[in-house]
Amino acid sequence: MDGSVTLKKLAGRFAGSILETHSYRGDDTALVKKEEIVAVCTYLRDDEELLYNFMMDLTAVDYPGREPRFEVVYHLYSLPFNRRVRIKAGVSESECGIDSVVPVWIGANWFEREAYDMYGITFTGHPDLRRILLYEGFEGHPLRKDYPLKKRQPLIGPIN
């Protein structure tokens, strides 16, 4: 896999928005400004030499005490070129929101719902942002580092 092509092209096209790139253990990674996430993803999907038409995974990581606190992590795959790239975008705790990439890949819908469910990150422009694995009425977001491991949840009534 010659994935560094991707990083070079990205750096050329979005010079001001790429904050950092590296290829640790062969995984090409680019940290982008969160305002540019939809533009970067659309570019990666549509560029003739990249064609990252497959969204493999979307998740988030919580770094309490760091600014920005959250990192949304996208794993993209290019079927025609058999390449993989990881895009990261920092999301601060005060805003706790990022633009949705559902317009780019419909499949992002459930992944973003999961990230919202587990971390409380809102995705602007998401068509149906609600909890997915947990239920309405669940208190807190369990994958945040400050959510206690053995926290009990209040008993709730039947939900529809």
Partner: peptide, 20 residues
Amino acid sequence: KGDLYFGFESARGQTGYYIV
């Protein structure tokens, strides 16, 4: 220190572990 995504072919498709 570092992060890694490893995808492999399980019986139903690509399973991936993302470990930080």
